[in-house]
Design a protein around this nucleic acid. Structure first.
Length: 462
RNA sequence: GGAGAGAUGCCCGAGUGGUCGAAGGGGGCACCCUGCUAAGGUGUUAUACUCCUAAAGAGUAUCGAGGGUUCGAAUCCCUCUCUCUCCGCCA
């Protein structure tokens, strides 16, 4: 069901509010694009009513907690202002009606018109303040990360993450294991030099069976999720700013995004963005929930700030393939659904027989939009460590608020924000790394996992 | 890229300065009528914010968006965005 195209659908907040740039009191909040949206991100009512608890919940996720105080203060003032402004507007309407009636009768309305003018000058001042308060408030709220769920381990960084599960045995190799990039170069399937020549470092050219393996993995993942009830989608790879704001990448993480010059379009950093924004500004029927979607999309990230990390090989690339899982669920089901989405992502690794573990991320290590997040980490023999291959998040109503996605509950007839979940199922490039390394043999060949063979023309090894 | 048309509520569609949150129709919902069905009748039918303990209710805003003119704008002016059609180009 398509609802009316809302303001939010179309425009730059900052062009709408053409306050002169120079002396704009809101300058601090206008560094990035902010798109107008009727609703707020975190529930400002909740923050205002539970200021101290909100602060303690966000303390590992936010540098300056005073932004919460500010937001609460702006909100209080905004409410006061709105009361006065509404009263004045009401009066203004009455004047106009009165004048209209008098004029149609041909009577004199000049004294009313004077009163109305006087009222207007007063109202203008108040409305200016009202507008500033809304902007300031929205500016802050857009930069606040989601509030973690109770059972998320508290802590400022990844050292507080907790391993909750281990699956599979890593093979005990009787020879010197090679890192994936050496295996791949020997096999002639990954070409780093030419990737750089064509594009830049962080982009890799795949040859022959390597290219085919990548495609096999994508098809295998999509088919598996499809069989398990996830509807397959094929999505636009360019997304508009509003969509990125909806899922939480904007306005805060602009520097990690590739933007099309002169356009309000970005290369999508994850298929979560197009998938979740399918229902941007819509109200769904309760009976349609939950909805399970899966899509393949290349993901583009500048990886600003991660220079020097994982520089060799294809662990960290500016362009990588990913099969994504996204779900829209009723609020009361999202925690349960989170578990099953995690299981869905695990299934891929189990079918590929790749050893992995699951960690629950601490409050400080979670992504911006997540209220709770599990990372699945696959065993990388050459690094003798587990490496993230999937991140499965419950965003609760955080993205739904930002993207304005609701459903109508049948029992009450009321609209509510729904919950969104997303997970990688899985990162394809890293899956390739895991296969190359875990399935490598002493002679430099690589065994193809059983489940992939039918996608590879029944080849058994690379 | 060139030319043109358009954007109104769940859908269609009227409305060119005055009591319009918006006629009319369709659809949905509720009730009535009918032996059942069909037909018919009556009513209802958005979202957000604020006030209110809650319910009920009230106020305000919203006719693509922003700005302007005016006592008063869906209606007039400016800017922007989006959609559609034709031509050109192109997988």
């Amino acid at each position: 069901m398509r609802i009316k195209q809302m303001s939010a659908f179309d425009f730059f907040w900052n062009t709408c509010y053409s306050i002169a740039n120079g002396d704009n009191p809101l300058a601090p909040f206008f560094k990035g694009e902010i798109f107008k949206r009727e609703s707020f991100m975190l529930d400002i009512k909740f923050i205002a009513d539970n200021l101290e608890s909100a602060k303690s919940k966000l303390k590992d996720r936010l540098k300056g907690l005073d932004s919460l105080d500010k937001a609460a203060a702006f909100y209080q003032e905004k409410r006061e202002i709105q009361k006065t402004a509404d009263a004045l507007r009401s009066q203004k309407k009455n004047f106009a009606k009165e004048i209209g009636m008098l004029k149609t009768k041909g009577a004199d309305a000049s004294s009313f018109m004077k009163d109305a003018e006087k009222l207007n000058t007063e109202l203008e001042k108040i409305e200016e303040r009202e507008r500033i308060l809304s902007l300031e408030l929205e500016g802050i709220l857009l930069t606040l990360p989601n509030i973690p769920l109770e059972d998320v381990p508290a802590g400022a960084n990844e050292s507080f993450n907790k391993e909750i599960k281990k699956w599979g045995e890593s093979e005990s190799f009787t020879f010197q294991v090679l890192p994936h990039y050496e295996i791949a170069e020997k096999l002639g399937i990954l070409d780093f030099e030419r990737g750089v020549k064509i594009a830049q470092s962080g982009f890799t050219l795949y040859h022959g069976t390597g290219a085919k393996l990548e495609r096999a993995l994508i098809n295998f993942m999509l088919d598996t999720h499809g069989e398990n009830g996830y509807q397959e989608k094929f999505v636009p790879f360019l997304v508009r700013g509003e969509s990125l704001q909806g899922t939480g990448q904007l306005p805060k993480f602009k520097e990690d995004l590739y933007k099309i010059e002169g356009e309000n379009l970005y290369l999508n950093p994850t298929a979560e963005v197009p998938l979740t924004n399918i229902y941007q500004n819509e109200i769904l029927n309760e009976k349609d929930l939950p909805l399970y979607f899966t899509a393949y999309a290349p993901s583009f990230r500048k990886e600003a700030g991660s220079y020097g990390k994982d520089t060799r090989g294809i662990i960290r690339q500016h362009q990588f393939n990913k099969v994504e899982l996204v779900e829209f669920s009723k609020p009361e089901d999202s925690e349960k659904e989170h578990q099953s989405m995690l299981a869905e992502a695990e299934k891929i690794l189990q079918l590929l027989k790749l050893p992995y573990r699951i960690v629950i991320l601490s409050t400080g290590d979670m992504g911006f939009s997540a209220a709770k997040c599990y990372d699945i980490e696959v065993w990388i023999p050459s690094m003798k460590t587990y490496k993230e291959i999937s991140s499965v998040s419950n965003c609760m109503d955080f993205q739904a608020r930002r993207a304005n996605i609701k459903f109508r509950r049948e029992s009450t007839g009321k609209v509510e924000y729904l919950h969104t979940l997303n997970g990688s199922g899985l990162a394809v490039g890293r899956t390739m790394v895991a296969i190359l390394e875990n399935y490598q043999r002493e002679d430099g060949s690589v065994v193809i996992p059983d489940v992939l063979r039918k996608y590879m023309g029944n080849c058994t090894c690379l």
